[in-house]
Structures are given as structure tokens and as C-alpha cells.
Design a protein around this nucleic acid. Structure first.
Lengths: 162, 162
DNA sequence: TGATTATGGTTGCACATGCCAACCATACGA
DNA sequence: TCGTATGGTTGGCATGTGCAACCATAATCA
């Protein structure tokens, strides 16, 4: 389908500052992502699950019982990867793999009570560290953060799927 | 050295909104990191190098000729991982592994001309996509971005090394 | 000086992740 | 009912990761 774009695809010459802004943004996001990745590895991996496994557990809890394919789409990984992540979580007792009664092919993934507890434990710990962190930030920055980050992630995700 | 902290280490009871803010922040950053990881996989991995390899190449160029250990510290990975990443980049011709003349044990890692060209190629492409992205953002968000992101990354990095 | 210790790198191991492709079972549509 | 589409699993192969063991060179100290 021929989507109509309101903004022309590229006219950086029209706004000379745009590329400079973009470069600044690129470096800032890259730095943030790298720092956070490392933090998450340290904070999550000591809790019996990998980062990916933790994200999968969160997705299952937040999106309700779901199929493997939906989970894979959400995590943006191949379904084979999702299958193995789920297998690991199931082996550890954090997820339950049921058959979808309305579709004999599909799974219905649910978090077990142990999974719910683990997720709460990890998130509480991380959030308390987050609290330490934002207390040191200027009030203006602290207030602007969620909106800005959500906007950025949403814009990137939208462009991704376009 | 006994660093003095201006804010007490933890008193969430003093500010009941703090934990809620922290949770909001946590979810926002997590989402952003996930979206970006996926983006980077798609944007970088079609250029003959993995994300990690690209980061390593950037680090070598930005920090000047450096040793494996310094690189590993910067990327926050084990030195064995750094060793293999460097080996891959060297095999592909993007890095040169020299002996440090002032220390017979250490390496001096440098980007080759091919490495420099590759990094420029990748960054130009990514930055142009970034430009598309921020053009769609509200002006207020776009203006707040770099400061907010830098502040957050810096705070996280500082707390990390504390 | 000679022995001990510290540091920089590499390698083996085990495992998670990643993608592709082949495969099976079930569902759906012509 | 037969062909096709979809949901999942598994195998293969590559990369990435940390840990531990190991080697070579420095640095330190008796």
C-alpha cells in the first residue's frame, strides 16, 4: 500500500542544524543504551535469569496470557529464539506453557506464582536503585524524563514498523 | 578516598512519589533500550560487523590507540570477550593489533583506514535516520532530548562506578 | 640478583542468543 | 478434501559472554 508521508523523506539541506542535532542525539542514546545494558546485566543476571528471559517474563505478565508468536513479535526476536527463552523459563518454573483451547496449535503462556514473585523481586530492586539515581537529577530533568523517553521510543518504534 | 555524598543513601519514605517516579522511569528506559537494541541490530549488522564490534571500533577511534584491557573496561565486558571482538575486527581488516613498545605485554589497538571508513559509513546512515526521527518529534521534546539523556547516562555511569 | 607477585592477553568450556531452514501438527479456505 | 497458511520445535551454525586456566612480560621485594 502506498503510504502517504506528510514530511518529505529527506531534505537535510532545508535545516542545516538537523544533522548536527541528530548526531548529538545518536551519541547520547548510544551511550545511554550501553550504560543501561551493562547495568541490567549486573542487576538481573544474579537473579537466576538472563536479561532476555526477564524481558520475556515481564511481557507475559504485562500482556496477559499470550502465544509464542505474539511474544516473539513483542521482543522482536525470531520465534525460535522465543521458543528457547520460554523453554528456559519453563524449566526454571517461572512460566507455564498451556495449550490454547481455542487453537490447537497455539500456546498460552502464563507466569507461575514463582515467576510473578521473581519479577516483583527484580523490579523492586531495580526501581529502588532508579530512585537513588533520579534523586540526584535536577527537578526539571526528572520531570521531563518519562515523556521524552516515551516519545523517543514511540517514534523509533513507529518508524521501525513503517 | 572517602567520597562524601550530599544526599543520604536512602530515605524513600521522605518522598512518597519518588518510587512511583522511579518505576515510571524504569519502564520508559527499558522500553527505549529494547527498541534501540532491535534498531541497532538491523542497522548495524548489515554492515559486516555486529553491534559489539561496532561499539569497539568506535571506542578505539574515539579514545585513541588503546590496550585490550582499557577497551574491555570501556565496553564493560570481560577481557576475554574484548579479545574475541578485537580478533574478529582484526580478521575483517578494521583494526590493527600492534605491540605496545613501552610494554611488551600490552597491545595497541588502532583502526585501519577501512575501519575508519566503515565507522563513518555506519554513523552517517544511522544519523540520517535519526534526523528523520527527530523531525517528527514535538519541538519541546526535541530540544530537551540531549540534556536529559546525557544527564541520565552520566548519573547512571557515576553511580555504577561508585 | 632471584624469587614472588601483578598485569595483559589468549584459549577452552559452557551456555545464551541469533537467524535460517526443515519439519510437524493444526487450522483454514477454495 | 486437498492445498495452503500458521504456530511451534528442533538442528545447524555463528557470535557473544563470563569464568578459569594458562602463558608471557613487568614490577616488586627480599
Amino acid at each position: 500500500m502506498p503510504t502517504i508521508r506528510c514530511t518529505p523523506p529527506s531534505d537535510p539541506a532545508r535545516d542545516p542544524g538537523l544533522l548536527a542535532d541528530a548526531r548529538t542525539l545518536h551519541r547520547a542514546v548510544t551511550r545511554l543504551v550501553q550504560v543501561w545494558e551493562s547495568r541490567d546485566r549486573d542487576r538481573i543476571c544474579c537473579h537466576d535469569v538472563s536479561i532476555r528471559q526477564c524481558r520475556a517474563l515481564e511481557a507475559v505478565m504485562d500482556l496477559g496470557p499470550l502465544s509464542l508468536q505474539v511474544l516473539a513479535d513483542h521482543l522482536q526476536v525470531d520465534k525460535s529464539t522465543a521458543s528457547r527463552v520460554v523453554a528456559a523459563l519453563t524449566d526454571k518454573g517461572y512460566l507455564a506453557r498451556e495449550r490454547d483451547p481455542s487453537d490447537g496449535r497455539a500456546l498460552l503462556l502464563r507466569a507461575t506464582p514463582e515467576g510473578v514473585a521473581l519479577r516483583r523481586r527484580i523490579e523492586d530492586e531495580v526501581v529502588s536503585q532508579e530512585a537513588e539515581l533520579i534523586r540526584d537529577l535536577p527537578e526539571s530533568v526528572r520531570r521531563a524524563l518519562p515523556g521524552v523517553l516515551d516519545g523517543l521510543a514511540a517514534a523509533a518504534a513507529a518508524r521501525e514498523s513503517a
